[in-house]
Design a protein around this nucleic acid. Sequence first.
DNA 1: TTGCGTGCAAACGCTTTGCATATTA
DNA 2: TAATATGCAAAGCGTTTGCACGCAA
Lengths: 141, 141
Amino acid sequence: MSTPPETSLSRTRAAELLRAQGINPTQQRTEIAAFLLGTARHVCADTLLAWVNQRGGRVSKATIYNTLRLFAEHGLLREVIVEPTKTFYDSNTGPHHHFFDADKGELTDIAPEDIILGKLPTPPSGSRIDGVDIVVRVSKK
Amino acid sequence: MSTPPETSLSRTRAAELLRAQGINPTQQRTEIAAFLLGTARHVCADTLLAWVNQRGGRVSKATIYNTLRLFAEHGLLREVIVEPTKTFYDSNTGPHHHFFDADKGELTDIAPEDIILGKLPTPPSGSRIDGVDIVVRVSKK
DNA sequence: TTGCGTGCAAACGCTTTGCATATTA
DNA sequence: TAATATGCAAAGCGTTTGCACGCAA
């Protein structure tokens, strides 16, 4: 198991961010926010659980899932679906796309200016476009 | 449960297609191929199971999964990952992309000429691009 | 007969849920 | 204190697997 990264935000800033979204900044939510928000990270639930608890946190699996969903609903995280087995969450909520390395199971950002969509299709009548997800699948050369 | 579509291929043509791929055309595989190949369809395992068995087939869940995987490995189908919960298979294996309607849980093809990728990013060093998946998420207007 | 394919049911892995307990305002 | 969040364990759901049986060459 790899070493967890440093938290990217102080608890104080993390709690402020949550409050700004109308989210009650409990100990666990603040801990999780301090890891994920304020910098671009891509995690799945079990990675996050390991990170938090390796750094002395005490957060249960259920709370990890609840919190990821809650943050996503408030736009603090974005769900990224690239594997059938697990859901990734991306703390970069700005417009951008992803490389997915299936060998490593790792997600990397593609800056919006590095990929250009020249033409968008017209959606089926009666529907509107909610978003466009581009995943560039890569593997070891 | 909706009515299953007609098979798009005769058993004879379906069996030929399988043989051409070095796949032993058993009864079940031929039945499944007759549904999926020869026209563009998007199915998940349980839909396919229902289709086949509503039309008098007798195919088990295990065989559905085995066969979908087998066909995908041989390039007869393409996996499409748009939902965390289930895997879709697309019998259109040519270059194209997808609309995904989350309300209906339905996948639709986007013709390659209806979406233009103006610039492709350089992959991380040491890796090469295997493919680019574009999913345009739509919902009821 | 020999080997591959199939079917069933059990196992699996990720995610969600129910409910008692703890924490927060 | 009243409301909300957390933790645990159990349940859920799509998918995979183990193994006995069936079928085709």
